[in-house]
Amino acid sequence: MSAPVTTLRSAGLRAARATSDGIRGPWGLPILFAVLAAVGVAESLRLILVGATSEARAGGWYLLLVSMLIAVGALARPDRAATKPPAVPGPDVVAPESSVQAEPERRTHAHKAVIFFVATVAFAWALPWVGFAVANGFFVAAYLIWIDHRRWWHALLIAVVVDACLVTGLRLIDVVLPSGVLGIGI
């Protein structure tokens, strides 16, 4: 039972580290800006060349201008800090204490970010089906168990109390919460 969980966990950690390293590499941002600029240029050309009205063509020119602004970002030099190999602490190079400690700590927190993202997507997906009261309860519990590392019964207890307080407080000020197909928390 524990072997698949461990494998899954280490795969998650590897994925989180790979994502983190990719994001923090020197070319991520220029590539993103280049893609956005290309999308903008393609759409602007469509409007300029086949736009039915003069307003549509004007909108195309505006978009072309905006794409040029984004292209400026794509042409920016990659981050020097990201391209430079990290300084190796030695007799002449003393790495600041904070940076030496922060990097491994940051890496161990990367899997928490992945868990947070999954929990957030699950919340957004579940909201129309189960309503805010249930989705929020599970979200808070999941956060406390997997990100805040609390005991499951402790996390559940806190989630129920927080959820009840939130829903009651919001209902008191007449906030209409999504209740889902089961109508929970109306």
């Binding site: 800006f33 956005l36 903008g40 905006v66 602004l69 984004i70 400026v72």
Partner: peptide
């Protein structure tokens, strides 16, 4: 500049 462009996009 690029951030402003992304916002406008």
């Amino acid at each position: 500049v690029a951030a402003c462009g992304v916002g406008m996009l």
